[in-house]
Structures are given as structure tokens and as C-alpha cells.
Design a protein around this nucleic acid. Structure first.
Lengths: 197, 197
DNA sequence: TCTCTAACTTGACACCGTGTCAATTGACAC
DNA sequence: GTGTCAATTGACACGGTGTCAAGTTAGAGA
């Protein structure tokens, strides 16, 4: 536990993140992760009770490493609702590709596993909070198009910015991350921001 | 094969659709379908080589029963691009809830199965065609906002209207199908239609 | 040095769902 | 009767997760 080399738990998490990254979150088995971490499959279970628990821990671990809060700071410091919305989309759009592997694995596990579903939902609700904050900022500036309630606009923005949509646009449609950020900003602006003339 | 009662194949397809509907596309096993159809699990394999093949057949079967073409006719007959876009969203938005169970099952199978993935992709490309046609109509009316190329607008509309997004809005956000149709129309209009003043 | 403990290893096994195989039944056609 | 075809029953392989028991290894404390 207090040995000189890196804790096994951390080695497992590193291996998990690396493997999921590499295989885009699919087809990575417990045994593969163990091998990558240089330990036996059973040893993984000494640290994580199940695959779902490991995935949840890996997600949390990655969030710390990538420092979500720092990335969202510019958005929170925005001087206007319009700016805040744009900066939020920028931060999120650049974050997705970095977490994609792990997120995808959790997304898949979620379909069959209770714990994974709860963890995913939790993260998505946190993300929704960012959307809500941006919409609220827009609203209190009087710049939210009058057809929308803040609630409804949040629902839509949140849905627009889902990982699945990023996946579709960058995968099926062949967009780059830059294009994604650029056009999602345009989409959000046209959809939610009242034209002032 | 030519007996008086309904062909077993059709009974299986009916049972599949019914079960998937009922369980929202999740946790339905081959044995459950067989039981529902009143035959043995193995008999299902006499008609469909694999679960994926059964799902693909069920999707096709449901499409015939629900008559997609008829539903899309109003959209195709629209007098303007703006109208076409709205009618397309309306047709599609009202179609999704009817196919959701089967679609969801195929969507899940697709993550692990080649054939299911191909079938799903195929259907989604057909759906994309509808999006493209609506955007083209808008474009040739000169009503597509100048920031968008038809291609990019199609990508976005197609992504917006995904089953996953419908799932999120009606599930997590608690929208009704009517609300979905209404607000998606608004979203599409604000996003793609150039304001003429 | 001996011993205790904790982390880890090896190997076997249960569980589940899919898909396969072989032997059998029952009905209808010629 | 004989052939055939759809369906049945029951057994089994496979892959991946998770469990269990027994054995190994290394470090800490007496």
C-alpha cells in the first residue's frame, strides 16, 4: 500500500484509461486491462468490485487528471450570456475528444448496468448544469429568444451537446473537433439568441 | 409453409415486435420471443440465423406494417422548403415512438454486431436522405441561412433528429411527442431558415 | 531467523445468453 | 407405408464476468 512504486490501484486506472482511449471504449475486457497493468485479472477485482465500478472510478480519475474545473473557468468568467454560451460550447467541445474512450465505455455499460447508469446520469446532470447556467445568463441579459423558456432551452442545448451527437458529427459526418465547436456555436446562437436590431 | 394458420415466421416477427415494444428494446432474449410466439427457442433459429438477423427482419417488417412511405408523402408534397422541413419533422417525430422498441434493440445490438450495425446505418442513411431533401428544398427557395452549406445543414438536422435525441428529450426531459415535434420544428426553423424582413 | 500479514498469482468453476448439433415426434402427401 | 418437413427436447460449446480456494512472495515485527 505504501511501497515506493505507484500504487496498483492507480496503475489499473491508468491502464484502463489508456486501453479505453486506444479502443474507443469498445471491446476492452477485464483481462485486457489487467494485462496492460501488468497484473492478473483477479487482482483487478481486489481493487474494484466490478467492471462498472472500475469504469466509474476511471471516469472520476480522468476528470481529475484533465481538470474539468479549470477548463470551465473561462465560461464562468464571461461578461455576457452570449459569450458564456460560446465559451461553454468551446470548453465542452474540446473536452469530449479527450474523455471519449472512457465516456463511451461507460455509455455502453450503462445500458446493462445499474451502477454505470447512475454514474453516467450523474455526470450528464452536472453537464446539464453548465447548459442551464449558460441559458440563464442569456436569459437574464434579455437575449434569450422569446419563444423559449429557460427550461426548454436548457433541455435542447443539453441534448444538442450530447456525446452521442459529437460522435455522430465527428464520426459519420467526418467533422473535426474544430468544426464541431464552430458549428455548434452557430447552431446555439441562431437557436437561442434573440436578434437585436 | 402453406398451412391455414399464420406462418410461423410471421408469428415470430409479431412476437418480436410486441416484446420489444413492451420492454423498450431492452432485456428481450431469444427464449422470451420464442415463448411469446408459442414455439421453442430453437425453432426461432430455423427461421432466423441469429438475433441480429431477427432484429433486422423485425425492423423491415414493422416498416411495412406502419407504412413509412405514406407518412412521408405530405412532406414530399410540400409547396415550399419551409413547409417541407416542418412536415418532415412532424412525420418523423410521430414515427419514432412507434418504432422505438425495435429501433432501440437494433441500436443496442449494433454496438456489438456487424450485421445489426450495417442495418442500422442503412436505415439512418435513408433517414438522412429525407433531411437532405428538406434542406435542399429550403436552399433552392433561397431560404437557407447563408451561414450553412446544404451539406453542413443536413449533417446538423440529421443529428438533431436522431432517435437518441428523441429518447433524451422525451425520457430525461419529460417531453411529450407533441412537444418534441413542436420544439424541434422551432429549433429547425430558427437554425436553418433565413429571416426575411 | 522465524512468523505473520497483505497483496498478488494460478487455476477452477458458476452463471448467462447466444448459437449449434443430434435424435425424436407428428402431420401431411404420395 | 414411406418420405419429408417443421418443430421439439436436451445437451453442449463459447465468451465474458465474477467467485472461490490454495499457494506464492515480500516486507515488517518479534
Amino acid at each position: 500500500m505504501s511501497s515506493g512504486d505507484v500504487e496498483t490501484r492507480t496503475r489499473i486506472l491508468d491502464a484502463t484509461v489508456r486501453m479505453l482511449e486506444e479502443h474507443r471504449g469498445q471491446g476492452v475486457r477485464m483481462g485486457d486491462i489487467a494485462k496492460e497493468a501488468g497484473i492478473s485479472r483477479q487482482a483487478v477485482y481486489l481493487h474494484f468490485a466490478s467492471r462498472a465500478e472500475l469504469l466509474v472510478a476511471a471516469t472520476k480519475y480522468l476528470d481529475e487528471v484533465l481538470d474539468v474545473d479549470r477548463r470551465l473557468a473561462p465560461s464562468r468568467a464571461a461578461k455576457s450570456g452570449v459569450e458564456r454560451l460560446a465559451l461553454y460550447i468551446e470548453a465542452w467541445g474540446n473536452y469530449i475528444p479527450e474523455i471519449y474512450g472512457v465516456a463511451k465505455a461507460l455509455l455502453l455499460a450503462q445500458e446493462t448496468d445499474e451502477a454505470a447508469a447512475a454514474a453516467w446520469k450523474d455526470r450528464m446532470l452536472a453537464m446539464r448544469d453548465g447548459c442551464r447556467a449558460a441559458i440563464e445568463a442569456l436569459h437574464s441579459d434579455g437575449d434569450l429568444a422569446p419563444e423559449w423558456t429557460p427550461q426548454r432551452a436548457t433541455d435542447v442545448l443539453w441534448t444538442m451537446l450530447s456525446v452521442r451527437n459529437w460522435e455522430n458529427l465527428t464520426g459519420e459526418c467526418g467533422w473535426s473537433t474544430q468544426q464541431y465547436v464552430r458549428w455548434m456555436k452557430l447552431l446555439a446562437k441562431r437557436t437561442f439568441v434573440e436578434e437585436s436590431e
